[in-house]
Amino acid sequence: MRFELRSIGTTVQYLLKIVFILLFIFPLLWMISTSLQTLHETQAFPPTLVPSVPQWRNFASVMDNGSFLMYARNSVVVTFSVIALQFLVMIPAAYAFAKYKFAGKNILFGIVLLAFMIPGQITFIPVYLMLGDWGLINTLLPQILPFMSNAFGIFLLRQYFMQLPEDLIEAARLDGANEFKIIWRIMAPMAAPALATIALFSFVAHWNDYFWPLVMTNSDSVRPLTIWISTLRSEEGIANWNIIMAANVVLVVPILVVYAFCSKQILNAFVYSGIK
């Protein structure tokens, strides 16, 4: 009897948890469903849950738009340039902070941590003016250069390098490897898990970014997908929610594909970043 009560309790818990998952997934499913509806279906009440005939041409009309490719290219170029630039800057810095002794090391590292705390919402006006003076507004650089020093990445990678045994470096030195080779050929590959975490973070952050490209750009030719999609509503006049949601799906798909393949790693990475 007691056992049965218990199993009923477990089943109820189970169902509650499924409802709870739906609470967080439903808006995304609703986005996908809407993206496949006709304009007529989106205006029905009660709302259409499943489109009678999936309207794949909604996607075609999003992507046929000549400017779509331009915005998508900007998003891709910015995101991957940021990651590449951050790696170039971060790996030697994290190695030096982890393995060398030098005067002022703690102060410099303190500055890195401090930088981590200052949000772009405070610095954007002066950065914009400065990059304007350099003549860079209307290029993609204002969306790339300011992120060259990833404070969080330097911190995480330094921790990782510190855990790697000193013997390894000594052995490589005895083999005649110079420091440059040690860093790029030995240490960096060994830190692949940490680098993957940092790359994932940067990918999510910059692919999704809205604020920074909004305040750093004056013309559509350098704007990313996020800005374009946010303007679709006013552009279309009346709200073509099916088209807007189709564009939204296009923006979300790359992220969801990455998430589907490594949700565990992403969860761990985010939790780890929160605890440290």
Binding site: P27, W207, T226, S230, V252
Partner: peptide, 14 residues
Amino acid sequence: FTPHIISIVSIALV
């Protein structure tokens, strides 16, 4: 966790 990795632009529009 899924909403957390999606752009606030998409979240806001949905």
